[in-house]
Computed example of a mutant assay.
Amino acid sequence: MPLVLYALALAAFAIATTEFVVVGMLPTLAGELSVSVPTAGYLVTGYAAGVAIGGPLLALAARRLPPRTTLIGLMTLFCAGHLVMAAAPDFTVLLVARLVTASAHGAFFGTGTVVAGAAVPAARRGRAIALMFTGLSVATVIGVPGGTLLGQQLSWRAPFAAVAVLSAAAGLALYRLLPRERPAPAAGTGAGAPRSAPGALALALATTVLGWGAIFVPYTFISPYLQRVSGFGAGTVTALLLLFGVASAAGGLLGGRAGDRHPTGALPVALVALAAVLALVGAGGGSRPLMVVLLVCWGVAGFALVPTLQSRVVAIAGPASTLAATLNIAAFNIGITAGSALGGALVNAGRLRAAPAVAAAVVLAAVIPAVLSGRAGRRPRRPRPAARRASLGVHAARRR
């Protein structure tokens, strides 16, 4: 694989680390900045909103820039934002800086997906995207626990400073490895525009919201589930989450390969497999040996969705449409927010045990738009009148 994919994976590692490391530091942040824990929670929910809203807006603003310039600029912004967070004098500055970096997060993954797909032949696009997104999985295994430990041992500012260093390293690597190129066509124009297949694109985005969001119905509360339902101790839960992270990294790579070989069928099959695993988690969560196996299957099946979902959007919208890819990153975060909220409602109602079964039902609902988007994406589009006349002229010339 081209070296630039590893630079993109390093950037993804830094981005995913900062997205989730705040969760483990909320009590410390609240105390140090003299705000309540619920107020500090806006650093988490606000970040998701920044990705979902600011990401597409930033991608739209940068639509006329070459992808190389966009990616380097976004990583520079991301690095600068984390330097501000590391030195933030109060909660307001920290929150604003986090919202800005969240917007860079969304736009970076949208543009990075297109660059990763263009760095390899079309038949290997899914594997290239999967390699980039491996940075997310590795962040859950190493970056987030390491960043949390750094914040607990040194200062809550230390993880933000560390992410700034990682961002600078990723930006420098991209500067060295990305070729210089002409400005990209504006989003919304040309064959790769999102509006070239609006129905199929909407179905693909709906698949992302439902399929990915369903995972977080039970996963948001996986620690209490493993302790209360499965009967694991707190120390064992930490080891199991590490195992889940390793399985998710493997699942992302497998999903990329499957998407390349079966571009239409891989996504529905992955969704059905995930629904089956979640249903089994709900039915057999009380068995500790079975739960260990199911947790591995959950990580593999769940994260196999990431490259297949993103590849589906790129295939529908065209490799030149960074806006469509960024909208799908927004869809991922909308799904996370909605899934976590649904899981919280179940837990508050005393239905923690039912969360995996509810998630399985939502995943099955995602199969419908997944199948329909695959069919719509394959459907040949009627040429525009001008293009049709030109084509007829060519054929007439050939007959003469």
Score class of each variant (00 low, 15 high):
L201G: 03
L71R: 02
H395D: 14
A173E: 02
I53G: 04
L83W: 12
L154M: 14
T140F: 11
Y47P: 00
A324V: 09
L294N: 03
A325M: 10
L136V: 14
P66A: 15
A250M: 13
L177G: 07
G344H: 05
G110C: 02
M25Q: 15
V229G: 02
F244K: 08
P159G: 03
F109V: 00
L33T: 01
L94S: 07
V23Q: 04
A49E: 01
I15P: 01
G256M: 04
G190R: 06
I316W: 11
L65N: 00
R399M: 07
L77Y: 09
A320M: 04
F91C: 05
F133H: 12
G24M: 09
S196K: 00
G188N: 09
E19T: 02
R353K: 14
G302A: 13
A158N: 08
T264I: 14
F108E: 00
A52Q: 05
R176V: 14
V115M: 00
V277D: 01
H105F: 12
L253E: 04
S196T: 12
I334L: 15
R382W: 10
V367A: 13
A338K: 05
P319T: 13
S248M: 15
R378Y: 10
A355P: 03
V292R: 10
L83F: 13
S248V: 08
V269A: 15
L280P: 04
G171W: 00
Y42N: 13
A200I: 07
G190L: 06
R257H: 11
A186D: 14
T111F: 12
L43P: 07
A360E: 09
G31T: 08
L205M: 10
S248R: 08
A48V: 06
H82N: 15
G211A: 14
M132Q: 10
V96L: 14
V144I: 14
G135L: 04
L253M: 13
V138D: 02
V35I: 10
V362L: 14
E181S: 15
I215T: 15
V272F: 11
G151F: 11
